[in-house]
């Protein structure tokens, strides 16, 4: 009905604590970085200038310059779109694939569900980064092969989560009631059962953006993801590894920013989880 009214009502209950304000500001800054990097670029990140090599951090170059004399800060700003963007693409795709497969498996049960469980068990038992490396190397060692590889290793955990919820909800009375109304299996799943996973999905996806970012930059670092001259963060660290001793800022700032973004994701994920739990507790009373 009036969803607008309900949204205002539910957000009104979330009080703006310092933590939430910082979280929202950080998200907005990241979003601007990803969508409007040109606002932050202070020097042409592609201009190679050997005379400007390995300049330490200064007012003109906050993160210093690299081995080709390029401004590291500007390159990182441009790289945000690639690294964070790809992490988000991976998480959204993995969640979508996992939700559909997990929901169908949990709903219909039988051999399909058994097969699904075995497949997810195999995926989850195998070290995911090793598997992602193998897939990425086999598919083509570029940005999209890394994205594809990570989606392939990441969807099973979503499938398992959604399957568990669907199996638990299947016997609930509201499902039986919806069935007697004439609702089809897909309608019941889409309207009633899958929405039960929203909170868990939101928390999981937020956390996973951080974890996928680490894996994605890791793949690039190993040469299996983004390729030079891309300003992808993992690739920057890879190209910096030979200069650690004479230009500490070169690997340091990309590493620091990755750490910061991952921490932010974990922090936000926990925050969302806490808000949802609090709300659920309130709704029960």
């Amino acid at each position: 009905m009036t969803s607008a009214a309900l949204i205002t009502r539910s957000t009104a209950r979330v009080r703006p604590t310092a933590r939430r304000i910082v979280g929202v500001i950080a998200l907005v800054v990241l979003a601007i970085l990803v969508f409007y990097p040109q606002l932050f670029v202070i020097a042409d990140p592609t201009s190679i200038n050997v005379g400007q090599r390995f300049l330490p951090p200064s007012f003109a170059h906050p993160f210093g310059t690299d081995d080709a004399g390029r401004d590291i800060f500007s390159r990182m700003v441009l790289g945000a779109r690639i690294s964070i963007g790809c992490a988000i693409i991976v998480v959204v795709s993995a969640a979508a694939v996992g939700t559909v497969i997990g929901a169908i498996g949990g709903w219909i049960g039988g051999w399909f569900d058994t097969l699904l469980s075995k497949v997810t068990d195999v995926f989850l038992a195998f070290p995911y980064l090793v598997l992602a490396m193998a897939i990425s190397a086999a598919v083509g060692r570029d940005l999209w092969s890394a994205v594809l590889a990570l989606v392939i290793v990441w969807w099973p955990s979503y499938a398992r989560m959604v399957r568990t919820v669907v199996r638990g909800q299947k016997g609930e009375l509201y499902v039986k009631a919806a069935r007697t109304l004439g609702a089809s299996g897909s309608q019941i799943l889409r309207w009633h059962v899958i929405p039960q996973t929203t909170e868990q999905l939101a928390v999981r996806m937020t956390l996973d953006v951080g974890y996928v970012l680490v894996s994605f930059t890791g793949l690039s670092f190993l040469g299996l993801g983004a390729q030079a001259p891309s300003p992808e963060w993992g690739l920057m660290i890879a190209s910096a590894k030979n200069y650690v001793l004479n230009a500490w800022w070169y690997p340091f700032f990309p590493g620091l920013v990755i750490l910061g973004v991952v921490s932010l994701c974990v922090w936000l994920g926990d925050g969302i989880g806490a808000v949802k739990t609090a709300k659920k507790g309130k709704a029960k009373r």
Partner: peptide, 21 residues
């Protein structure tokens, strides 16, 4: 209580049969 989807408004649940059919 358990026969209704508690995420949905009462109006939504009452209208659901019309949507389904």
């Amino acid at each position: 209580l358990l026969a209704l989807d508690q995420r949905r408004t009462v109006g939504w649940s009452i209208a659901e049969p019309l949507v389904v059919h």
